[in-house]
């Protein structure tokens, strides 16, 4: 599975076409869920991506949302789409190489984290990180979730060195 490595002051990873398609697809899905959030209120994924700042005070909480949520949502959509776009395959290549400078890495880390938050929430992870949702779809999601955890870990390691 793909991992990031340090390369010329930045980070670089090679993805198979399948991996690139899966990750870009997930990023676009997350961007879509966030962009369409007005129509899907109550979705646990959105609750996790936009947590209440004042869990014990509805009035302060809605005021906080009013002042911060649009910008936060726009940023998350931009990050996810930037990640998806950098996974665009080149003609005649069987791998997709992604090379990130420090600023791109920040975008990727946040986007990867949002995708993992979305997948982990859909899997209903318990406090131990074990999925509470079962079935073939869940098995595939768990595999992708684990892969993205390793991928994010490798990118943290590079930017943190």
């Amino acid at each position: 599975m793909s991992r990031f490595h340090a390369r010329g002051g930045g980070a670089s990873a090679k993805f198979s076409l399948g991996e690139a398609a899966i990750l870009a697809g997930l990023a676009r899905q997350v961007a879509g869920v966030i962009a369409g959030r007005a129509d899907t209120a109550g979705d646990p994924v959105l609750d996790r991506l936009f947590p209440s700042a004042y869990p014990d005070n509805d009035e302060f909480s809605s005021e906080f949302r009013r002042f911060t949520e649009d910008e936060l949502g726009d940023e998350k959509v931009r990050n996810a789409l930037a990640l998806a776009n950098s996974l665009e395959p080149k003609p005649d290549k069987v791998k997709v190489r992604v090379t990130l400078d420090a600023e791109d890495a920040l975008v990727w880390l946040r986007a990867l984290n949002d995708i993992r938050l979305a997948l982990g929430t859909r899997l209903g992870l318990d406090d131990e990180g074990e999925p509470t949702v079962e079935g073939d779809d869940a098995d595939f999601t768990v595999a992708v979730y684990d892969w993205l955890g390793g991928l994010q870990q490798s990118l943290v390691t590079v930017v943190d060195a």
Partner: peptide, 22 residues
């Protein structure tokens, strides 16, 4: 603290704010 909480949400961390003695 509201700026910090908004920033944490930007990183995907679960953050809240409250009065210290609450």
């Amino acid at each position: 603290m509201e700026r910090h909480v908004a920033a944490m949400h930007g990183y995907g961390l679960w953050a809240t704010l409250q009065k210290e003695d609450a």
